[in-house]
Computed example of a mutant assay.
Amino acid sequence: MSSIIAIRPVTPYSADFERLREESQALGFNMLNRLSTHWLDGSNLFSAPGETLLGAFLGDALVGVCGLNRDPYDETPRAGRVRHLYVSHPVRGVGVGHVLLSSVTQHAREFFDYLNIRAPQTAFRFYQRAGFTPVEAHPQITHRLVFSTLSAA
């Protein structure tokens, strides 16, 4: 795709978010409904230290969303969680998801030691190509990306 993918903060009030939410729902995905509901009721504003909600834009059009929270299902204080990653169907396969996930991952390194995700089986390959490894026997975590703790001395 010749257009440059721009990443910037978004909210459910952002232009095109409602269109993206309706598309996701029509395709059988509920994550943007949950994101919107939790934002509007105040239970998840992506506002704690290290948290963010990012959108991917092609021109002025919002074509993807990805959030980052502290993981409520992991007792480790520096455990992050990738949330609500969704890319508009017409632009899947052109790198939007990869750019969004890379942006969230880069942001997360300062605040978290690793990232968890609970992904549908259809997304396992996507996350594994991004460096996430499978997690066994945890009902809320399918994959984890551990950041290197090695530093130059």
Score class of each variant (00 low, 15 high):
Val146Gly: 08
Tyr127Arg: 07
Leu40Val: 01
Asn33Glu: 11
Val99Asn: 00
Cys66Lys: 01
His138Ser: 07
Glu136Pro: 14
Gly97His: 13
Ala61Met: 15
Arg70Pro: 00
Arg129Gln: 15
Asp60Lys: 09
Cys66Asn: 10
His138Trp: 01
Val96Tyr: 04
Ser151Phe: 10
Arg144Tyr: 04
His38Val: 00
Val87Glu: 06
Val146Ala: 15
Phe46Cys: 03
Asp60His: 13
Leu58Asp: 01
Thr37Ile: 09
Ser88Pro: 11
Val135Met: 12
Ser47Tyr: 02
Val87Arg: 15
Phe57Gln: 11
Arg78Ile: 09
Val96Gln: 09
Arg129Met: 14
Gly42Met: 03
Phe112Thr: 01
Gln128Tyr: 05
Leu32Glu: 06
Val104Thr: 08
Phe124Trp: 06
Ala61Pro: 01
Phe147Gly: 10
Ala130Asp: 07
Ala26Arg: 13
Pro90Val: 05
Met1Ala: 11
Val87Trp: 02
Pro134Ser: 10
Tyr73Pro: 10
Phe29Val: 00
Val104Gly: 04
Gln140Thr: 04
Gly55Glu: 05
Ser24Asn: 05
Ala119Phe: 00
Phe57Thr: 12
His84Ile: 06
Val135Gly: 13
Asp74Gln: 12
Gly67Cys: 12
Ser2Gln: 12
Cys66Arg: 00
Leu68His: 03
His89Cys: 08
Asn33Gln: 04
Ala6Ser: 14
Asp71Ile: 03
Arg21Ile: 01
Leu58Phe: 00
Asn69Lys: 11
Met1Leu: 05
Ala137Gln: 09
Tyr127Asp: 02
Thr133Lys: 07
Arg118Phe: 11
Leu150Asn: 01
Val104Met: 14
Ala152Tyr: 08
Asp16Glu: 08
Thr133Arg: 09
Gly42Arg: 06
Arg78Asn: 13
Ile141His: 02
Ala153Cys: 00
Tyr114Met: 04
Glu136Val: 15
Arg92Asp: 08
Gly95Lys: 08
Asp113Gln: 08
Ser102Asp: 15
Gly55Ser: 05
